[in-house]
Design a protein around this nucleic acid. Sequence first.
DNA 1: GGAAATAAACAGACAGGTCTGTATGCTTTG
DNA 2: CAAAGCATACAGACCTGTCTGTTTATTTCC
Lengths: 190, 190
Amino acid sequence: MSAAKTRSDARGRILETAEKLFYAEGYRAVGIDRIIAEAGVAKMTLYKHFPAKDDLVLEVLKSRDKKLCQAFADAIARYRNAGAQPLAAFFAALKEWFSSDDFRGCAFINAAVEFTDPEHPVSEFARFHKREFFKLIHQAVVDDGAPEAIAPAVGLLVEGAIVAALMNQDPASADVARDAAVAMASGAVS
Amino acid sequence: MSAAKTRSDARGRILETAEKLFYAEGYRAVGIDRIIAEAGVAKMTLYKHFPAKDDLVLEVLKSRDKKLCQAFADAIARYRNAGAQPLAAFFAALKEWFSSDDFRGCAFINAAVEFTDPEHPVSEFARFHKREFFKLIHQAVVDDGAPEAIAPAVGLLVEGAIVAALMNQDPASADVARDAAVAMASGAVS
DNA sequence: GGAAATAAACAGACAGGTCTGTATGCTTTG
DNA sequence: CAAAGCATACAGACCTGTCTGTTTATTTCC
């Protein structure tokens, strides 16, 4: 068989645990010892799969990028099937995310804040994720029949809502952003 | 005389150095040893003025809050005197900030990201600053003759622009936010 | 089928560095 | 002289990453 199967998938446990801890408490605040203890894994096992902590951070973000974009696409489809307009569906998905118990802002914004060097692979990947995520926003704008030109502003509304939801511990910013975006989408005459 | 004057104002040098380093590299990433070395100060002097690192962080943020709000008020007044409308003046000030060499996002958002406990005094003060800063936005909206109701959305645009400017290393997000805010201010009929 | 070989993970100590915060003297200055 | 600051060493905790073995699971081969 292929080489992707181990006796208990230690690599997967490490990634899962690291993602949870990094997101909840920060990349620098969480140490390797903590991760291996909670994942129930030997230190050498971790360092065999991830040569350095930064590599682990990067892999965690890559995994999270895929999961997050997929989760959003799914949630949007769900709200659309329930009759919501594209933009409204996007913001409903956003609010659903804000309302999750473990919401701690955007892992990629947080990474960009903690990894101050913009050339660091983690910073570069955070930028990449934002471009990917923006595609979802852009698509929602287009599907809504709104002019493409408003997409960047809607993107700013979304980033702002994420930050506000984190700082105020309140998902309501999603509604503020949604109303503004919908208004921009319809009343964009001139 | 009062107790605010020392032979070389070590306290002031500590605050200044700490603010620069914390902002540029992060609160956890910068250690006490680094601060005292660059401030040219003994460790005991620092701990006499600030009993713990967190106290220093909080004092740095308090100082920065005052300076930042004042700098914004001044810049807005300057742009207004040059003939700009209130909202445009605010966003011109924002872009000026984004364009400064040492721009590294919002020190308070960064603090909220690094200090994960929302009850921590630093987190609470970051929230306080956001409320203070929002007053400037609110004022600009009102002065512009726009309906007060759009102020929260303009606030989200501003937060989003800050994050985007940080992640993309590009001040252009200020223009995107300005255009959207101005459009909201004028075309807010229904 | 059963034994040997191979690969992966576990366990825990260790090195070398950094962190916060304290303690002890010495120097400068008002 | 007294107060503030300087210099430096230290304690104790934590950090990343390495090293040495032991255990377990799978695969291979007879």
